[in-house]
Every structure is written in C-alpha cells, then in structure tokens.
Design a protein around this nucleic acid. Sequence first.
DNA 1: AATGGTCAAGTCAGC
DNA 2: GCTGACTTGACCATT
Length: 302
Amino acid sequence: MKIGYPCINRTLGCTGDRTFRLKSYSEERLVAAVANNLDCLMTMLRFNADHNMLFFRITSDLVPFASHPVNRFDWKGRFGAEFEEAGAFIREHDIRISMHPDQFTVINSPDPGVSKRSIRELLYHADVLDSMALDTTARIQIHVGGVYGDRDQSIRRFESVFRELPVQVKRRLAVENDDRLYGLRDCLSVSRQTGIPVIFDTLHHGALNSGEDIETAVEAASRTWTTETGMPMVDYSSQRVEGRRGRHVESIDLEDFALFLETTKPYDFDIMLEIKDKEESALKAVQAARRDPRFIHTEQHS
DNA sequence: AATGGTCAAGTCAGC
DNA sequence: GCTGACTTGACCATT
C-alpha cells in the first residue's frame, strides 16, 4: 500500500501546473512553463519520497496545450533529459504514478471530433509517461463518458473505441467510476469486455452505486488488476458533512480513514487522497497508516 | 499594484 | 435553450 495526493503541493512554494492563455501562446512561454513545471515536479517527487508518500498523480497541465493544434513544439525532444531524470527518480524510489485527463476527455462521444481530440489528449498523457520510461503500472485514468440517451450503446461505443486505441494509450488506460452516469458496476462490466483495470473512487461510489458496500466494491475492483497493471488504485475522499454533493473535504477525516483501512483489511491497494489540502492530508494519512501491515515504509533507519 | 472576470476542450441536470 | 457544476488557481486586461 502506497499513499499519495494529486498534482500539486501547497507548501513547497512552486507551482507544477503553470500555464498561460491560448491567446498569448508562444514557444517562449511554452518552454518557460514546461521548464518550470518539470522543475517543480522534481521538487515534489523529492518531497514525497522524503515523506513516505509513494503514490503521485502527475498534473495534465505539465505541458500546456500539449494536444492542441497550436502546439507544434517538440517538447519531448527539448526536455528529454528532464523527463528521463524524473523517470529515473520515480523508478529508483519505486513511486507509483497516475494521470487523470480532465472532463473534456470523452472517448465515447458520438461526435467524432470530440472522440478524436480525446484520443490526442490521451496520447499526450502516454507520451509523458513513456518519456519517463515508466512501465505499465503507471496508469491514465478516465471515466466511461457520456450517456447520450442510450447507456448500453454508449458503453459499447466506449469498448469499441478502446479496441481501436493506439497501443501506447491502450496499455495504460484505467477506468474510474463516476458520481452520476457510470458507477462501479458499469466499470466492472467494461473491464470484463476489455481487460481495463478499474479504479474505485469512494466518494463517487457514495453518490452512485448499486448497493455494494465498501469491502465488496474494493474486492471487485481489485480483481481487475494484474501484475502487468500493478497494485490496484483507489481514489479516497470522504463526503463533507454539510457540503454540496460530491464536494471534496477540506482536510482528511482520520476517523473515517481509519474505518476505511479497517474495512478493507483483506485487500492491498494504493490510495490516492483526493482532498483539498493535498499533501497535508496525505501526511496525516501516512501517519495513520503507519501501523498498517500493508503500508510500505521507506524512511531511513533511525 | 490590485482586482476580478475569465480561462481549449464536454456532458448533463435543473431551471 | 441556457447556466452552473464538475475543481481550481492563476492569468492578464483593466483600472
């Protein structure tokens, strides 16, 4: 079991997702942003390794406008050494990596333009992980997509698009249950048809489920992972008590987290903490998991 | 220098 | 039909 947080660190004083407006696009700005973002990525990775946080989600904003036609710059070539350096560090410290393209990435859209742009975006994500020479346990997580008035047909469209995906993308994809359209049961069904591993999101499951309790859900999702795809990934967040639907909490509820660890004891997986205060909660979770036999310790003997 | 409207992209619920 | 949520900060035009 490894514990981590997504994309940005709020205490290190660097922003790893610097971007700029499309209107002000220039090669100069792009190079400056990517240089900054890769530099900050290294800072975050070092911090994480120092603090026993061995699961990390790399931001999709690492390379601004990466899949946009405006960007014809060879960022892979220009920053090859930096990507290799980050990859070497990740491999050396055995850090688990995920990426999560945002909601515009919808491969099952009936609009071929949307689907095509989504695949280009996925290729960008695969390029990042490939440039770091990471194996296929580094995953790109997406949702099934839209319903378009016909769930079954839309699921089938996801599956047929998946089968035609470029292999670089195909080998890294993971599908995550969402909170209003496609729940765990749908993702498991997609997994049976395609072999895609399922990332279980606890908060989404709270909003949309078929009655599965947490243990059942974690068990079922875990079975979709292999040695090829790695340790199962779980997105964990608890519901804000008097918050709006689906909102992430400010900071981790350690009581709830302890209960979650207890409930899922028979299964091992990596936990991504989707919580507003990012590394602060992850640090607390690492402390809480310290005595858990599943938890991987890397701190120096002392 | 401070501010606040706005930012590449999609989909759906709710009005 | 249109707006807001999803999630969020920060860019940058305007003052």
